[in-house]
């Protein structure tokens, strides 16, 4: 379970998010919606530990009992999926997947894991293809599988469906939800599209503008 306690965010003394708390159970997806510039991406950056210094944020993140907000990004074991699939263009599909598998996994097993992931997409024959040879939907799915192969403890999704064309979106959404349930980790989805939130079959939080411009951060 991932829990966020009393998260607040300010930019130049202006409060964007005030005292936000929520919990996400393993295998569940919490969707967060709200207008642009409200601080949704900053919340994700706070959760992944890569918030830029000009924003001031406070709050606590716990994964079960572990205090994540005290850890640097690389020790948090966070998975992040963005609009762009960010598959490395100079590596084959299977190399992209192998890249993510933790090094403690034995060599023979790594290969098996990667092939299994490809089999879930029915593209074993594309193992040695380059990312650009896949369709947009396939790239998005490979990107998710790659993220999950790194065995993250929680997953952050930053509008991962917005670049896909509408016909594809439904399939990819279902695939993502399915994979998150199988991996049984908490996931947080940030989106503009209510359909995305509905498809994730979980809670939905809507962020609104904080009206009171109180409490200048010191």
């Amino acid at each position: 379970m991932l829990s966020v306690n009393a998260f607040s965010l300010s930019l130049d003394g202006k409060r964007l998010i005030d005292n936000l708390s929520f919990k996400i159970e393993s295998g569940q997806v919490l969707s967060i919606m709200g207008p642009s510039g409200i601080g949704k991406s900053s919340l994700l950056n706070f959760l992944s530990g890569s918030l830029t210094s000009h924003l001031s944020a406070s709050g606590e993140i716990y994964l079960k009992d572990q205090a994540l907000h005290l850890l640097p990004t690389q020790e948090r074991q966070v998975g992040l999926l963005q609009q762009m699939p960010l598959l490395f263009p100079h590596m084959s599909i299977i190399e992209n997947l192998l890249f993510a598998i933790p090094s403690r996994v034995k060599k023979s097993e790594r290969q098996v894991l990667a092939i299994k992931a490809l089999a879930r997409l029915d593209i074993e024959n594309k193992a040695n293809a380059l990312p650009k040879e896949l369709s947009g939907g396939q790239q998005a799915r490979v990107a998710l599988l790659r993220t999950l192969l790194a065995e993250p403890k929680y997953l952050l999704l930053d509008e991962p469906f917005s670049k896909l064309d509408p016909a594809l979106r439904r399939d990819v959404r279902a695939f993502v939800l399915d994979e998150i349930r199988q991996a049984n980790i908490p996931a947080l989805l940030v989106t503009h599209d209510p359909e995305d939130a509905k498809a994730m079959e979980g809670e939905c939080l809507e962020l609104k503008n904080v009206t009171s411009v109180s409490a200048v951060e010191s």
Partner: peptide, 14 residues
């Protein structure tokens, strides 16, 4: 260069 590629790589494998 889109630094996101490098960030993603470091998240996947530090």
């Amino acid at each position: 260069y889109q630094e996101e590629y490098l960030y993603q790589a470091n998240r996947l494998r530090y």
